[in-house]
Structure formats: C-alpha cells, structure tokens
Design a protein around this nucleic acid. Sequence first.
DNA 1: AAACATTTGGAAAACGTTACCCACATCACT
DNA 2: AGTGATGTGGGTAACGTTTTCCAAATGTTT
Lengths: 345, 345
Amino acid sequence: MHQQPATARRVTIVDVARQAGVSTTAVSKVLRDAYGTSPHMRSRVRAAVDELGYRPSAAARALRGRTWTLGVMLPDVRNPFFADILDGVGEHLDDTEYQLFMTSGCNDATSEARVTEAMIDRSMDGLILIAPVSPPAHLDRLARTVPTVVIGRHSHSPRFDTVNDDDFTGAGLMVAHLAGLGHHRIAHIEHHETDRIRLAEMPNALRADGYRHAMHQHGLGEHIDIASTTYTRDGGYHGARILLDRKNPPTAIFAGADVVALGVLDALTEAGLSVPGDVSVAGYDNITLAGFRAISLTSVDQAGHRIGSTAARLLLERITDHTRPAAQVKLSPTAVVRGTTGPPR
Amino acid sequence: MHQQPATARRVTIVDVARQAGVSTTAVSKVLRDAYGTSPHMRSRVRAAVDELGYRPSAAARALRGRTWTLGVMLPDVRNPFFADILDGVGEHLDDTEYQLFMTSGCNDATSEARVTEAMIDRSMDGLILIAPVSPPAHLDRLARTVPTVVIGRHSHSPRFDTVNDDDFTGAGLMVAHLAGLGHHRIAHIEHHETDRIRLAEMPNALRADGYRHAMHQHGLGEHIDIASTTYTRDGGYHGARILLDRKNPPTAIFAGADVVALGVLDALTEAGLSVPGDVSVAGYDNITLAGFRAISLTSVDQAGHRIGSTAARLLLERITDHTRPAAQVKLSPTAVVRGTTGPPR
DNA sequence: AAACATTTGGAAAACGTTACCCACATCACT
DNA sequence: AGTGATGTGGGTAACGTTTTCCAAATGTTT
C-alpha cells in the first residue's frame, strides 16, 4: 500500500505544462477557453489535467483574473425565508463554475461593513446582499467596487440591481382576503422603523403602507390599527398583547412577517382565544413552517426561490457587463390561504 | 464635492510603504506583528495604514501565508439546529481576525467533495464539516491537506478532531423520561442507514442504539418498535403512519429528530388523535421551533452552541499546531420536557 | 514568388503579499 | 581595540496564475 507523504505539494499549472509538453501559457489558455489553441493541444492539456488531478488555485487566479467566487450576505440563518432565496441562487449557479459562500449574523451596519470588506479582501467576483440595513451611500460605494445585487430593499441606485417582492401589493392581497371574509377590525403589526431613508426602502415600511392603502380602498379607513414592534417572535407576542388590550380588539391580525404571526399565535393561545374562531391570524413570507399542519398559517408567498434565481442571473450579467444599467425587478406575491383565517364570529 | 474615479485602484502595501517612508518588508512585519520593528516604525506604518485605508489582499496573502478564512460546510440551512452551532462558532471567532464563510446544500458525497475542493482551492486556513456523509477515507485525505474539525459524526481519525453530542446517552434520557411517565409501548423513528461504516459513526444510528439499550434497561425489551424512514418531516409523517397501523400501536413516539417529530404531529392531527392525551411525542435536537407555544415539543437538547464554540476552539488550536493529536469531544445532552409528553391514558 | 493575413504557441511581466536572507548600527563585555 | 550579541531595516526571490506581447508557421491572395 502506498503511503502518501505527509505534506503533498499542490499540483500547479507548471506540472501540467511539463506533463503535456507545452508552456504554462498554453495550459492557461486551454483552461480558460481562450483564443489560440489547437484541438491537438487542447486534448493533450486536458489529458494532463485529468491525469494529475490538477485544480487551479483560486488564490493565484485572484491576483490576475476572477476567483469564481460569489458572496451572499445573510442577516440571519434562522429566517427560513432566506433559505428559499438561497435555493434559488444555488440552482441558477449549479451549471456554472461559480462557487457560493455565505456569511450570516449581520444585523447592524457595522457588522455588515465588516463582512462586505472581508468579501472584497478575498476578491470575490460578485456580492448578493440580502436585506441589508446599511445606509444607501455605503451600498453605493460598495457596488462601485464589486458587482452587487441587493435583495429585499427597494433602492433605486444606478450602481446595483435590486430584486424585491412587491410588498405594497402583497399587503393589499392579505387585507383583501380578510375583508372578503367579512372582517372590519383588521389590525397590523409592523416593524418599527425610525431611519428616514430606510423608511422608504425597507419592505416592512411598504407592507405597512400597503395595509393602510388597502384598508382605505375597502372603506375600512377608520379601523386602521397598527402595533409597532419588531419582526421577531417576541415582537409578535407583544404586538398581539397591545392589540388585544384595545377597548375594541381586532377580529383579525395581519402580521408583517410569519415569525411575527407565530408570536401572535403564542399570545392568543395564552389568552385562551381560538384561531380562527375568535381571531384570524395572517403572516407574510410563507415560510416552510407555515405549511405545517399543526400551524397552517395563512400567509403571503414571496416566491423566494424566484427572487434568488433572478438575483443570481442579474449578478452574472453584471459581472459580464459592468456597465449595464441597473435593473429593479419586482416580483408578484400571492396569498396562500390556510387554517388560521376564517370569517369573524 | 469630490467625484471618485470610476475604477479606484486598490491601495497596496507599496502605497503604504511609500507613504510611511519605509520598505514593504517593514510594513508587512508591522502588520503581522513580526520580529524586527521599532516602536517608531510601527507607529509610522500604522498611521499610513489608517490614512490610506489600506486593507491587505487576502488573495495575495494566500500565495504565501494564511488567508484568515475558515469554511463551514453545512448540509442544510433549513435545519435550525445548525444555526445554534453556527452561533457558537461565530462567537468564538468574534475576537479573532478570522472570517467565516459557509456553504449549504451538501447532501451527498459528490457535492461534499465539490465543496471541500472549492474551499481548498481558495486556500482556506481551516474547515468545519457539519454532519458530513462522505466516506471516512475521504475525510482523512481532506484533513491531511487542511486543518479540519468534524461535527456530528463519531469518527476516530488521527487526522481530525470531532465534536459530538453523546447521542447514545441522549436517546436513553428520553426513553427514561417516557418510561418514567408510565409508558411501555415506546416506539422510535430512525433514519434508515445502509452503509456499514456510517452505521457506526452517524448520530442517527447511535440514537437508535441508545433507544434499544435503554428499553432493555427499563425492562421494556419486548416493546421495542422501530420505524425506519428518514430524518425529514415526511419521514416523520410516514413513520407515524406505519406505527399507528400496528395492531398494538405505541402510546409514545420518540422521533430521532425534531423535524421528524413535527411530521409525526402532522400525522396525529390528521388521524384525529390528541397529543399527549392519546399519544406522547418527543423529538431530538431541541430546535428553536420546539419551544414555540403552539408546538411545545419535548426534546433532547444538544447544546449546539457549545458544540460550535468547541469546534472553533479546536480548529484554531489545530491551525496553530498542526501536529497536535486529534481530540474527540463528546458533550452531554439534556432532556427538555414540554407539552407533547404526558402519562399514558 | 511576393505580400499579407491568420493560426499556433511561448517568453516574460505583472498581481500583492511573505519569508529568507544579509547589512549595518549599537551596545556590552573581554 | 576586538569580539560577539542584539536590534533594526531592507533587498529579493518566491507563490501560481493571467495577460500582453511577439515570433514562427501556415495559408491565401495578388
């Protein structure tokens, strides 16, 4: 049995060139499908590559050309909606040479900056930012340095593409569903936003706007009732408590996110209220969990998969053509009706 | 207002050297805290670095030294248990220069190989593999090339460290809990494993073994009943259907994973059975979701956070000292009793 | 046959670091 | 004064690619 040496030197392009009896330039050309290679040389080089098990060093490549590496910045691995997006991105990249790496746990502008810097330091070819909170100027500066696509933020920069769900319309869909069931006192739980700029760009703000607009449209303007908390399970719990303490509590609660709706369900269970008998509950995002029979949450589906694959497509386009004008893609959400919504008692 | 040029050349070590009036060697030394720098030179260099906003290129570094990059291979972003591990890893790395990048969606040996190759191509300094399914020989070869820590696999290689929950004991804890409640017909749903080697190394196999062993210990050997499906929600659903169709159906179902338990709950809801009135249900992993009031699943907690931080610590140690003997860390699980388990009717 | 275009292949200079040397100055001790 | 140890700084060759030339060979048109 052959004992491998403890430190096996990596096979380089020089080894391949020697094996094939050609220059390193030739090998490089073949590998990159560049101009100036004869069929004969190509086959010899490819044979040598296979025989030696050569793999190009991304590090060395980075110094001259591409790294074939893309970075995805993810605020939170726990949010299952992001998993759908990742699936979409991954699927689009499967047929390409690109490799995807992600970071998670960026919840403020400081850590976002740290992560994006790290990606640039590593010469990544393109970045996908999911729901970033950094100020627009920072995103712009970033996109000047490296091809970038932003998901989940309704920006209009000439520097980067954006892919979004139409949150305004989506909120309207859910209000329409609830109003159609006969509800009047439909309340909303929003993610509290103070920053003036983000107020116009963040999905949560647009969902609240869409809610307000749709309530007016259905002649329910006087019943508009919003609890301002956060997009977390705790936020949902507290939001529900606030709404239930009103002198005229709502018969339906439309949470701005599914995780929020889960918190609402917790609060209702605790208060001894039945769903949808006493109160209807709806969420937003249609996370996988929402489909579980034990929960069966009515929600708005964002087509996360399509968001992801669209973002990947745009990014590759932008890497190829750095000057292409920026695109803003807006996808249409759909309402998914399940067991937590029903007619008011 | 100063208009930035469209293509800003990156600030390199040469620029810093010129600005500080020293050699590039000097700058490099200061940056790496290497020997041979006077306090005066250090301060001049650091000033130049700050002034120019210099950041070292990881790509160039990779060709000579470290990249300060660690890779985490994750089978599935959707499994919330992995998020706990990531938190632990991230926390341990926060005070260091290292940056973490992950990949997800590796569910077979082929894609695992592809991902690990990609990480090596990019000269990552160390790898953390979570629940890999590759054959041991492949893991060994990998660990020979790059410092590696494996989580969720009870291997005993001299090449890499492992961090695991004591799955055998954990299963025993849950059987003890259920038996203590008065259950006799306690069934188990396992992840079907055919590979002979993995049978000895994979947590799922150890959980099933632990279940069997504990049943015997409690004098319930004759009631051992295992449904062999997969560790997915569907697997749980089908497993439950199989068990419920027995002529003597179990009064308690211990699923090998929380996601499986969720599928079990679906099947029970569908069958019109109450939990824990008709059937008690327990899972394994204590995913965040298990704590949701609407679910309130009894489970075994694996201390994912501690698994992650331990793995990170071991990895950094191994990067520093390549020759340190391999360690196998086994952490103790705890049972978390919630609403889905109760005495049999 | 001369002139020119095209194909085929390679030499060599980047790319931005680090590591291995060597040189010089300073200081303490014989 | 001579010797050796120590501190301080830099020159330069890697590291493994890609890219820009340039030269030779071959083919095509006058």
